[in-house]
Design a protein around this nucleic acid. Structure first.
Lengths: 212, 212
DNA sequence: AGAGCAATTCAACGAGCGTAGAATTCAACG
DNA sequence: CGTTGAATTCTACGCTCGTTGAATTGCTCT
């Protein structure tokens, strides 16, 4: 009885070869967090997607919050990317047009899109995640943006930068999350031509109406 | 034993007078759905906020989905409001400026803001709610908008209308959900002056870039 | 006064969740 | 070959959730 046929059902215990399980869990958690938000994503579903026992998730990363932090660690595009996108403009493109083009190409990267959707979805459900996203927008986007928006009066630059943020957020929301037409199928060139001048005006144009 | 002192602890059973419990549950559910989205809001929390047993929620409305439908029934602002807002423009205001002003004043209404946040929060978490919101945007917003956007070529009007939608969504998202400064504290006049011309250009202006 | 119905709560079910600890298998190193 | 430690699964606890059925109380009508 004690020895009997283990050959077929040897399930528990260590596997042969390099398994890369840790990265599988990380990748699965990114997808799940992006799809369902922090609360909606379950450790059990993540483990199921990674083909792994839920307890293993616990073994590698501590609790759910630590896993979330680990999953968001890489894809957090640092502000240097944004700053670089602002500084090196292609000739013929205005600053706003170039920003739209750069943002669209960055958003097409799967990991970035996942991270973005995760942040948005989580932010709209939990207050903690909302604060995180707000801080990220403020520090990583609004600040370098404000540096580029020198419309003369320095005290209006936060307002100018936040206007840009609203347009970019709405664009990302419509194209990647809500997915309504024809924003989804429009080409990057179309969107850049349409939205770019808006950003230009927000950054350096007249935003005070007809009567000064 | 059987009769003993009920006087102090008479808790179960019908209450005296008109209780208005049904509406209390509805109101509480609207607030909870707005705050936490469909999945995040729990029937138990709704009942707790209404000062009521969870089973009573079930007694009035069937299951959770029916309660959600009932809660969203009233606050769905019909498209006639949007159409009216588009037709009657104050003199001196452009169409886009007037749209921003109207939208902001409508969004200030508590029930509308709750419904809007509920839709957004739920849409970003569950696919079903996302489809609902997408349809609502398409039918109730993009369609009357497309009627107002006659920029000459009729085939571009969907694109024009959806550009308007991205800007308005982003504005609402920043001001009411993510709440980042200074969009939150800006006055309606400031926002109308800043964003209105964007909508004007999206609706009737040149959106094809410098090289035709 | 009594019957019937509406409002309300209590107690409990089954499921899914996050988490914890023990048990098992394999690789690596002595 | 024996020991040690990492990888993996199993089992289980306690919690919250949506939902259900029975019990209790009060209003209303005859």
């Amino acid at each position: 009885m004690t020895w009997a046929g283990q050959r077929t059902s040897a399930r528990t215990g260590r596997r042969a070869g390099e398994s890369g399980t840790r990265e599988a869990i990380l990748s699965a958690s990114r997808a799940q967090f992006a799809e369902h938000g922090y609360d909606g994503a379950t450790i059990r579903a993540i483990a199921r997607a990674a083909g792994v026992d839920p307890a293993l998730v616990h073994h590698y990363f501590g609790d759910k919050e630590s896993l979330f932090a680990a999953a968001m660690k890489l894809p957090v595009i640092p502000s240097e990317v944004i700053t670089a996108a602002l500084t090196q403009g292609d000739p013929g493109d205005s600053l706003g047009t170039h920003m739209v083009r750069t943002a669209l190409s960055v958003w097409e990267r799967a990991d970035v899109r996942d991270a973005f959707q995760t942040m948005l979805r989580s932010a709209l459900t939990s207050d903690h995640a909302a604060a995180t996203l707000r801080q990220f927008i403020t520090e990583a986007i609004l600040r370098p943006l404000a540096a580029a928006a020198d419309g003369g009066e320095a005290e209006r630059t936060p307002f100018r930068a936040s206007l840009v943020a609203t347009q970019m957020l709405g664009l990302a929301l419509g194209r990647y999350v809500l997915r309504f037409q024809p924003v989804v199928t429009a080409s990057a060139d179309e969107l850049a031509a349409a939205v770019g001048p808006t950003l230009d005006r927000y950054l350096t144009g007249d935003i005070d109406g007809p009567k000064p």
